[in-house]
Amino acid sequence: MNATPIALLCKPVLIALVALLAACGKEAAQLAAVEPDQGTACALDGMVLKDYPGPKAQIHYKEGAPEFFCDLVELFSMVLAPEQKRPVAGIFVQDMGKTDWAQPSGHWVDAKLAYYVVGSKKTGSMGPTFGSFSSLPDAEAFVAREGGTVKRFEQMTLDMVSQPGKGAAHEDKMH
């Protein structure tokens, strides 16, 4: 049986599509969060992540190894910096609704999908910091206990980074 011209054209297209989907799957797998080990240090100040309370973060760049941060204020100072030019493939933060503030471990979520609490009483490695949560109810419950205001990733600003314990602390609703 002879193949039709359409069948001859479809086979290479189908092979290319399968290869493309496989490549996407590999890229997505590369974007999984990495659990820091006992000696993983902060990219900005060299502090060992496991030695400090509060949520940690990691940035995966399109090229090179991921960078880790011992505090979300440090993460946002890096992400929001006007001189930040390295192409970012993914950013992860810990879900504090699922891990212990004093010794956070695991529970990484996409930073761009997380809810952040700005202006709470809780501190991290460098003093006042932000809390990160995968769900709005967990973030709101944290605000009820610790104070602060819920924000989304795109609402975070350099002003909040320069004064993490102030700024939005007295607002009473999410904007």
Results as ranks from 00 to 15, higher is better:
W101Q: 12
K85C: 04
P82D: 15
D71I: 01
P82R: 11
V79Q: 07
A81N: 14
V79H: 06
C70Y: 00
K85M: 09
S77Q: 12
C70F: 02
L80R: 12
L80M: 10
S77Y: 06
T99S: 12
V93L: 04
D71C: 03
S77H: 15
E83S: 11
G90S: 13
W101V: 06
E83Y: 10
M96T: 10
C70S: 15
K98P: 00
L80P: 02
V73G: 02
F92V: 04
P87E: 15
E83T: 13
M78D: 05
L80S: 00
F76G: 07
L72P: 02
A81C: 06
R86E: 13
T99E: 11
T99A: 13
P82M: 13
L75Q: 05
L75A: 06
F76D: 10
G97P: 07
I91C: 05
T99F: 07
P87G: 08
P82S: 13
L72C: 01
P82A: 09
D95Q: 10
S77R: 11
R86N: 06
F76A: 02
V73K: 14
S77E: 13
D95L: 08
K85E: 13
E74A: 08
D100G: 09
D100H: 15
L75T: 08
E74Y: 02
E74P: 02
L72V: 03
M96F: 07
M96N: 07
R86Y: 01
K85W: 06
W101H: 11
Q94E: 15
Q84N: 05
G90A: 12
I91N: 00
L80E: 05
G90C: 01
L75W: 10
V88S: 03
F76S: 10
Q94M: 04
L75Y: 00
F92K: 14
A89P: 00
L72Q: 01
V73E: 09
A89G: 12
W101P: 05
A89H: 01
K98F: 06
I91R: 08
L72R: 01
T99Q: 06
D71E: 12
V79K: 12
F92T: 12
Q94D: 06
A81D: 15
M96E: 10
K98W: 01
Q84S: 08
F69H: 08
M96P: 09
L75E: 06
L72W: 04
